[in-house]
Design a binder for these strands. Structure first.
Lengths: 194, 194
DNA sequence: CACGGAATTCATCATGCGTTGAATTTAGGC
DNA sequence: GCCTAAATTCAACGCATGATGAATTCCGTG
């Protein structure tokens, strides 16, 4: 009972292989980062031949791009943060951001993006473009704030997830959402007031 | 005039190869991260045969450990932060931290530690141990603060260097030390007052 | 000046990687 | 029921990597 030893050729019934590969890629890119997550390992995790990955996605870079597409619509995110009194925007930002990261279905993808941003220039460019274009530009305009203040708010949130989910330093790693919101909201509020 | 084509055997005169290798390793680990910084590239940068790296350091992991030893004495760092009125500790923390990161001789090493912490579990463990043991424990005791507050302060600083030196998002990337201190000091001060 | 040890290079190994092209099997439209 | 297109596997290539062991040259001590 070792390997099922499948024969080549199309498998009967409807195929979920493409989605299986994407799911496996999200998990492994998140756990190991771009380089150490090999196509072979992703294929193994998805129960599939490595060549099938290339058949569907062409190259590892394209696989990464497909798997790591931002799992959250920035417009929705910003909508939730903006909806409410300006005097509590810090709290809403902290809560919305932390809640998204705590979703176990989304986290591997975020961790993957984070890791690759810290690792490869191409990953850094991905995050840079996103932060700059989808967040900083829009919000700075909407709130009429110096961009540096927004960057400071972004840095505070990035630092928290780094400590909590990547490096996993206690007591940050096991802090509850409410504890963190209480701590971070005033900081973010100050940055977002100018 | 392509390759000097050195013959094997010891080279005349005093040898700086060991230090050359360490310096090259710091630069390349910092620029490319642990995995993409190959021993061969490090050896090339140091003007040396790859086997010499193994001769001196045994394995890539040991090279990394030797090259990435914390370039700053935590006691000295903490001394500078603590020396002065408690009401300005946030400003001193921000300034000391940013100044260390801005030193071009130290930065590759810090970037390397940061990158590897985000990439490999072994790197994360390195940073986790350091942050926990050398910083959080001592300072929490000295200041009588909840550890979570210190972690929050650490997260703010980590986030700033991530945005400024790793992802390099504008306007954070080209912000001056003074601008950042003015922005961050009140945040840190609040975390460190309990 | 002889000799042991340190420094240095060379050639080589096994491994894992991304990728490619051909072969095989099924699904779906005519 | 064909026949094209899609799905799937197999086998292999070329490359880069970390590591090893032997060979060569120099330094320092006696």
């Amino acid at each position: 009972m070792t390997a099922p030893a499948r024969r080549p050729g199309r498998r009967p019934g409807p195929s979920s292989s493409r989605d299986d590969i994407l799911a496996a890629a999200r998990v492994l890119f998140g756990e190991r980062g771009y380089d150490k997550a090999s196509i072979r390992a992703i294929a193994r995790e998805a129960g599939v031949d490595p060549a099938l990955v290339h058949h569907f996605f062409g190259s590892k870079e394209e696989l990464f791009a497909s798997a790591m597409e931002f799992p959250v619509d920035p417009a929705v995110f910003l909508g939730q943060v903006m909806a409410g009194p300006r005097s509590q925007i810090g709290e809403r930002l902290a809560r919305t951001f932390l809640r998204i990261w705590s979703d176990p279905r989304l986290r591997p993808q975020f961790v993957g993006i984070f890791r690759s941003a810290a690792t490869t220039e191409q990953g850094a460019a991905l995050l840079r473009e996103f932060v700059t274009r989808a967040i900083l530009a829009r919000v700075a305009e909407a709130l009429g704030l110096p961009p540096l203040n927004l960057a400071a708010a972004a840095s505070q949130m990035l630092g928290v997830v780094m400590l909590k989910y990547i490096v996993q330093v206690e007591p940050m790693a096991s802090a509850t959402e409410d504890e963190l919101v209480a701590l971070l909201a005033p900081t973010l509020q100050r940055y977002l007031e100018g």
